[in-house]
């Protein structure tokens, strides 16, 4: 007893609200799933780096067929995705997941109602209006959807904004993980900005800007002088083989996603 009381505590158990990616499984056909996953990941080979991923099984809960989780987990691990557990699914599927060593995420009633409200608000504010401070600030409801719950947006902004005040030069890559990224100096060709949230560049932007890197479709990009090589939001990207459109070239611009279309608008004052 005395040993136990005098010893330093060896561990603590705490709850943590961490951003998690969900992989929505839409089929039980393993070959099809693997093929499409491989194709998708070949576009961004470094995207996953032992990233924990939750398998979302709601879409296949009604299907009788099971999934070979062991096989799927090792397949995912080879591609940098570390399956942490499952959410949704039929009892049989969940039991199979447990057998394969996966954790079970409880089916919390979805925050769908709240999400819908948020979607609506986005459809209003999402279109270009001069970016006021209020708009850039994240509404509190986003913060609440951070927990790995059913229907939550993947990897929402969580951490304080990352601010870079020196030139970002060719070959440099800056990643604002789970955060917005603000750059106050030039971003040169061959440099890469990545943020899970929004990206702001208050100077010439000549490199690549990848906002909503983990699939946040509401992420936006604001640049003071648009000369970018590549712009991307939630995986929808645009390159400028024939040059940047005249109306925004070298000018302040605002980039957001409408459906799966990347929209570039001039910032008019």
């Amino acid at each position: 007893m005395s040993i136990m009381t005098s010893a330093e505590p060896a561990f603590k158990i705490k709850t943590g609200h961490l951003p998690l990616l969900q992989l929505h499984i839409l089929t039980t056909e393993m070959t099809k799933l693997k093929k499409q996953l491989t194709e998708r990941l070949s576009q961004t080979p470094d995207f996953f780096a032992n990233t924990p991923v939750v398998l979302e099984l709601t879409a296949i809960a009604g299907l009788g067929a099971g999934i070979d989780f062991r096989e799927l987990v090792s397949f995912m691990l080879k591609r940098g995705m570390c399956a942490a557990g499952v959410i949704g699914g039929s009892d049989a599927q969940r039991a199979a997941a447990v057998k394969a060593g996966l954790g079970l995420f409880s089916d919390v009633p979805a925050v769908n109602a709240r999400r819908r409200a948020e979607d609506q608000s986005f459809s209003v504010t999402g279109h270009y209006a001069p970016a006021s401070a209020a708009e850039i600030e994240l509404p509190p409801v986003v913060a609440e959807t951070l927990a790995p719950q059913e229907g939550a947006l993947p990897a929402q902004v969580l951490r304080p904004t990352m601010v870079i005040d020196k030139p970002v030069r060719t070959g440099q890559r800056i990643y604002a993980e789970g955060a917005n990224l603000v750059v106050l100096a030039i971003v040169n060709a061959g440099a890469e900005l990545i943020a899970d949230g929004d990206i702001h560049v208050y100077a010439a932007m000549r490199g690549r800007a990848i906002a909503g890197a983990r699939g946040n479709e509401t992420a936006r990009i604001f640049v003071h002088g648009l000369e970018a090589e590549l712009l991307s939001i939630a995986g929808c990207f645009k390159v400028f083989e024939d040059g940047i459109p005249q109306n925004v070239r070298g000018l302040p611009a605002y980039i957001h996603l409408e459906g799966s279309r990347l929209v570039i608008l001039p910032m008019l004052h």
Binding site: P167, R169, T170, G171, Q172, N188, G190
Partner: peptide, 9 residues
């Protein structure tokens, strides 16, 4: 471009 890279390093 290469000078830019060196400056970054």
């Amino acid at each position: 471009r290469d000078s830019d890279r060196i400056l970054g390093i």
